[in-house]
């Protein structure tokens, strides 16, 4: 398993495509807590459940003014189809070219399989990682850890 970035580390900056002509950078979200969910792939059954669950908990995340981002190595076109199929209401970012570049910086890349780990990060409004969790790849880590991490942020 990878060694993911630990709390009290500055979250590496990134700028990734969300759609074919729209990109999003972490620094654009400064001032708000950010939740990053790295996941192995669109369409694989466990991811589907994980993303569906995170999607359902979105209203609760918003109470903390937190932004949720999903990141995998899939392309924007795959993300688009996946998000539409599952009615996801948060951005999926494509760590597609160079493949896995951002996941590697977070220690959340599986070299052998060429996909992201299933790893969660909570980043505070100043861009510092306050909580991170690496889940067994086949296991949906739920959302309780994220909520506890958001609660622990100074208001």
């Amino acid at each position: 398993m990878s060694k993911i970035l630990a709390p009290n580390t500055a979250a590496p900056e990134f700028k990734l495509y969300v759609t074919a002509d729209q990109s999003l950078s972490l620094s654009e979200l400064k001032g708000k807590p950010v939740i990053i969910a790295f996941y192995p792939a669109d369409w694989s059954p466990v991811c589907g459940d994980q993303m569906a669950l995170l999607n359902a908990v979105l209203p609760e995340f918003r109470k903390f003014k937190a932004e949720l981002l999903g990141i995998s190595v899939d392309s924007v076109w795959s993300h688009d189809a996946f998000a539409k199929d599952r009615n996801l209401h948060f951005p999926l970012l494509a760590d597609f070219e160079p493949k896995g570049k951002i996941a590697k910086q977070y220690g959340a890349y599986r070299e052998h399989e060429g996909c992201c780990e299933r790893a969660l990060f909570v980043i505070d409004k100043n861009g510092i990682i306050t909580w991170s969790y690496l889940s067994p790849v086949a296991e949906n880590p739920g959302a309780d850890g994220i909520l506890e991490a958001l609660e622990a942020l100074p208001q």
Binding site: Q50, L53, D144
Partner: peptide, 12 residues
């Protein structure tokens, strides 16, 4: 019910 479940680690 749902949020209580999330807090208890229900993931599906």
């Amino acid at each position: 019910d749902f949020m209580g479940g999330v807090r208890s680690g229900v993931n599906g």
